[in-house]
Structure formats: structure tokens, C-alpha cells
Design a protein around this nucleic acid. Structure first.
Length: 367
DNA sequence: AACGAAAACAACCGCATCGCT
DNA sequence: TAGCGATGCGGTTGTTTTCGT
């Protein structure tokens, strides 16, 4: 049995919004607010629209102080850094850019910024990542390659920015440890969210709120505050650098609950990583025409460009995928993959220091 | 000017989660 | 605490605009 539709599809208008519809929706919300019920809203206004559609229209286009287009260099920097750090968590990224919506940023990234950055890579590496039909869509939930597409993309960006530090416009910001998130502490925060009143280890949004919310706000009041901000258009931006130590202090990474099953968890994680790496090696075979046993991570162009030993490059690739896997394991949806059953999989909690060495090895900047 | 391809933008869909009863 | 409706999110698709020939 399928899920009940949120509205009567037959009597709902779809497609672009007309100026009249926009005016009706805007006028109503500005006067009465959303009333906390988007589903009922279109009926009240007399719009033949789905409540979700109204919500999207309001949030993305009609609410005050929305900016469209004209992304600045600084915004590019932030988007880039955050994407590399946390992946396609557009709502979080959008929260750091006042006036920008997640949809806008997502579109901007997919259509322009990504190309602008990845366009710098060598032809050969793009052949592997983009021109290989096996890797093209990333839609197949059973395709283990899909798991690492985002990670690989982020890795490539990471490498390029790292390699171009002296001449690229992102270098200053990229070296800002407060903005470069895939740090040991950040990973620990994500993974240890359940040690601090988080009953559901899969509840990513709960972790997000825990991570971003200012002190003194419950999740509920935070939600209400966010709702108010959305309606009134004030910035929901949280000053990230200052919020990080704030929450870090609230969650003790050395909490004994977190490290209880470290060895067991590390073993399980390593096994999963090995499997993923094997799968990726197989897909590399089809691209490089190498024997599986001969494939090295260092065969990747993005690694070849780095001044690292082969073993370090391979460690890097291991680390990067593990970073992605850890994130995905910690979340059921926000991190993209649904290939790992969060209901049955153990909550992987890395040891303190698990990523430390790798990041120092790779990044070359102080965390 | 006409056409097709590519890029950009807008909106929809399905799923996970929240929060109320 | 289970059930259910509402909400939020990210991925995807559809449409429009721009560009190249």
C-alpha cells in the first residue's frame, strides 16, 4: 500500500506560479502568517495549489530579503568549503548565507560552481568520474559507486584547492580551520550526537540542531525561532566559527559511552571500507584497463597531482571514503545514501584521533 | 533567422523526521 | 508509545533561456 498523497493531485495546479498567485500568497502570509499549517493554507487563500508547493514558493521566492543570482566570490568560497566539508547539505549551507535558499544554492552549485571548480581537472580524471556511464547518475541505490560519487567529487575539489592554494581565490578561506569542517572534532560531533540526549542515532536533524543552535534554546524553541525567521525574513545565520567551540564543549568526545565499542566498531568500519574500496577498484579497472591487483589509488590523476608518496595517497583515499561513509552511517537521509540500513547498522563511533593523522597528513594545515 | 544543444532555473516528488494526540 | 498528519530536505525532472552554428 502506498503512502497517502498530501493533497488531491487532480484538483491541484502544477507548474510555474502566476503573478496573481504570488500576490495572493504573499499578501496572506504577510498579514496572517502561515498559521502553522501549510496544507490548509491554499484553501484559505483560494489557491489551487498543494500546501507543499505554497511553502516552497514562499520560502524560495516570496519571503522578504531573498536574493537571486549574483553570487559573490565570498559566497562561492563558503559554498565550496562547506560542500567539501559536509557534502550536499544545502539547508545547512544556506543557513550560512543570508538571503540564499537551499534550492538556489543547490542549483547554483550543480549548474555553475561545480563546473567552475572541477573544470580545472585534467581530462583524464574527468573521464573516470563523469564520462563513465556507471558513475553518471548516482541514482542506483544498489550501486556502491553511488556512495562515493559525492566523496570523490569533494575529494577532487579538495585536491584542487589544496594544489592551487597559491593562486586560487579560495585559498584564504580554505585555510580557515573554522570553515574547513571535516576535522576530527567535527566528525566526533556528528558521531557522538547520541551521547548527549539524542535518543535516535539516525536523527540527523537533531544533530544539526544540536550543532548549530545557540545555547539556551531547546529544539522546539529553536524550531519556532527558525519559523519566525523564515516568515519575517531575518537571517537565520549562525556564526559558525563561534558556534563550534560552543557545542564542542557540550559534547565530550572522550565520553566513555562513545568509545565503548571502539575496537569492534573500527573493525566493522574497516571491513566496510575495504569492501567499498574493492568495488571502486573494480570500476576503476574498466576505466584504466588495469588488472584489479595492480590498481592503486595513486593512479587517480587527482592524487598524481599531489606531492605524496603512493602509500600516503592510498591512505588518503581510504580516509576520504571513510569520512563519507561515516557521515552516511550517521544519517539516514541528509547525507544522501540509503544503501546502509540505519535501523540495523551499528552506530559507528570513531575513536578520538581516528581521522586526526589522516587529516594532518593530507591537508597540510593546522586543524 | 532558424534550429538544436547546453545551461540555468523553477518546481515536484518521495522519504525521513517531527510533534501532536 | 504507537499512529498519523505536517513539515523539511535533498534528489530529480520539467521548462525556459541562452548560446553556437
Amino acid at each position: 500500500m502506498g503512502r497517502a498523497p498530501c493533497c488531491d493531485k487532480a484538483n491541484v495546479k502544477k507548474g510555474p506560479w502566476s503573478p496573481e498567485e504570488d500576490a495572493k500568497l504573499k499578501a496572506y502570509i504577510e498579514k496572517y502568517g502561515t498559521g502553522g499549517n501549510w496544507i490548509a493554507l491554499p484553501q484559505k487563500i483560494g489557491l489551487k495549489r498543494c500546501g507543499k508547493s505554497c511553502r516552497l514558493r514562499w520560502l524560495n521566492y516570496l519571503r522578504p530579503n531573498i536574493k537571486h543570482g549574483g553570487f559573490t566570490e565570498e559566497e562561492d568560497n563558503i559554498i565550496c568549503s562547506l560542500y567539501i566539508s559536509i557534502g550536499s547539505r544545502w539547508s545547512i549551507i544556506a543557513a550560512q548565507l543570508p538571503g540564499r535558499t537551499d534550492n538556489d544554492i543547490k542549483n547554483y552549485w550543480n549548474t555553475r560552481l561545480k563546473k567552475k571548480l572541477l573544470g580545472r581537472r585534467k581530462q583524464s580524471s574527468s573521464g573516470f568520474n563523469n564520462n563513465n556511464p556507471r558513475n553518471g547518475s548516482g541514482n542506483d541505490p544498489d550501486d556502491s559507486n553511488a556512495l562515493s560519487n559525492s566523496a570523490l567529487e569533494r575529494l577532487q575539489l579538495h585536491m584542487q584547492l589544496q594544489g592551487l592554494q597559491n593562486q586560487n581565490p579560495f585559498s584564504n578561506l580554505y585555510n580557515n580551520p573554522a570553515l574547513l569542517w571535516p576535522t576530527n572534532k567535527f566528525q566526533t560531533l556528528i558521531m557522538s550526537g547520541n551521547s548527549n540526549n539524542n535518543k535516535n542515532p539516525d536523527d540527523q536533524s537533531q544533530k544539526d540542531q544540536q550543532f548549530y543552535k545557540p545555547t539556551g534554546l531547546s529544539n522546539t524553541s529553536l524550531h519556532h525561532q527558525q519559523e519566525r525567521e523564515k516568515i519575517h525574513g531575518s537571517s537565520s545565520q549562525v556564526d559558525m566559527p563561534s558556534s563550534v567551540p560552543l557545542v564542542t564543549a557540550a559534547i565530550d568526545p572522550m565520553d566513555s559511552n562513545n568509545v565503548e565499542n571502539d575496537q569492534q566498531v573500527s573493525d566493522a568500519l574497516q571491513a566496510e571500507l575495504n569492501e567499498i574500496l574493492r568495488n571502486n577498484n573494480r570500476s576503476m579497472m574498466s576505466y584504466n584497463h588495469h588488472h584489479q591487483d595492480q590498481i592503486q589509488m595513486s593512479d587517480f590523476c587527482c592524487f598524481a597531482e599531489m606531492n605524496l608518496s603512493d602509500s600516503n595517497k592510498d591512505s588518503l583515499m581510504n580516509m576520504w571514503w571513510s569520512n563519507d561513509l561515516m557521515a552516511k552511517s550517521a544519517s539516514s537521509s541528509s547525507w544522501g545514501s540509503r544503501t546502509i540500513s540505519t535501523s540495523t547498522a551499528p552506530v559507528l563511533q570513531p575513536e578520538e584521533g581516528m581521522f586526526q593523522d589522516n587529516y594532518e597528513l593530507v591537508a597540510g594545515y593546522s586543524l
